[in-house]
Computed example of a mutant assay.
Amino acid sequence: MAGGDCVGVVGLAKNCGKTTTLNALIGAAAGRKIAIGITSGGRDGELCDAITGLPKPPINVPRGALIAMADFTIGRTSCQLEIVQRLGIHTTAGEIVIARARSSGQVEVIGCNRASDLVRAISQMQKLGAELTLVDGAAGRTFLASPDVVGAFVLAAGATLDTDARGIAEATRMAVHIFTLPPPSPAAASRARPAMESGTSLLNRAGGRVEALPWPTLLGREQRLVSMLDPGDLGLVCARAVGDGLLAALTSWLARRRPDSPAFTVVAADPSKIAAGDRTVQAFESAGGELRVLRKAHVVAVTANPSSPSGETLDPAGLVIEISKQVEEMPVFDIAAELSASGGVMR
């Protein structure tokens, strides 16, 4: 990683091992004498999960690390912290501050819950000397999938996603697919950018015609939108979230078109705007639909946690291999078992 990089660790569900992954990255950076900043897109590092009550690994920080955190949690650390800057960003857990660890230890981090605030916190840590900023992506914080917030991603998959390795691997494949969706054609992108900046959704009609839609959001208007479509229409620029209802309505419409009809492309700003579930996305694409994003995310690795909160554990090597088959050449790691694979082959 180059200086100034920001890496997000995103769990595909709760208890997928993202904090374990974060700690491994922290340890690797500290071992290379890289100055690090740490924050969260929610709440991480607590001893017990706030929802399930199950024990969780704390976040380990080395001496000198910068942490952007709510000041309420400063008293819950095992290391000495010095507040170096208050950001004036307020959450239910107090003001977000940047603290420097004067000794190594463990911390609980409650971070920013809005993308704009998180970007500001990351920027301030970089100005204070962080060469690598690590963001723990709390479950459900979809804004962390935006490349405007984080430059590169590590996805944490685990046994909470499914009961067998194949199901976990398929869920991981779909997550990587969404994070790395390709851009639209240059011509389509040039039309989409100004529309999205103004919050306007567009219909791309046959013959190159473009029609601006009158609604600020398509939520609740999916059937009205479909009733406006003609068989030769080419796509939709969605200025806000692309949800299950929208893709399901478009899938039904696509099924009624002639088999030789052109592809119908839905363009979103970035992966954080794809709010539809895996099955809905698969059905839309199988019906001839295409998903595209103006800014795709950069996924650099996947980690695998074979243990579920229920106590059941899958074969670690089998899970790593199965996931690596589905994500092609992307490296897959089981940090606890010290295993890695790529393309279905153990390293």
Rank of each mutant, 00 (worst) to 15 (best):
D5I: 14
G45I: 00
I34P: 02
L181C: 02
G318Q: 10
S103C: 07
P184C: 07
P306Q: 09
G45V: 03
L213G: 05
E322Q: 12
A28M: 13
S198T: 11
A255V: 08
R120P: 00
A121W: 09
C48V: 14
L219M: 15
F333A: 08
A121Y: 09
A336D: 14
R257H: 09
P309R: 00
A188N: 05
P231H: 05
I321F: 09
T133W: 13
G243M: 05
T19K: 10
V154D: 02
I34Y: 05
G199I: 00
K127V: 15
D270G: 04
F153H: 08
D244C: 08
I122N: 06
V345D: 12
R141V: 04
G8C: 01
D334S: 15
G245S: 10
M346N: 12
E131Q: 15
G318V: 08
E322A: 13
N113W: 08
L25K: 00
K296H: 15
A239K: 05
K325F: 09
S272W: 04
C48K: 13
A24H: 11
V302C: 03
V226W: 12
L81Q: 09
P183G: 08
Q124F: 14
G343Y: 08
A248I: 09
L247V: 08
I89S: 05
G3K: 13
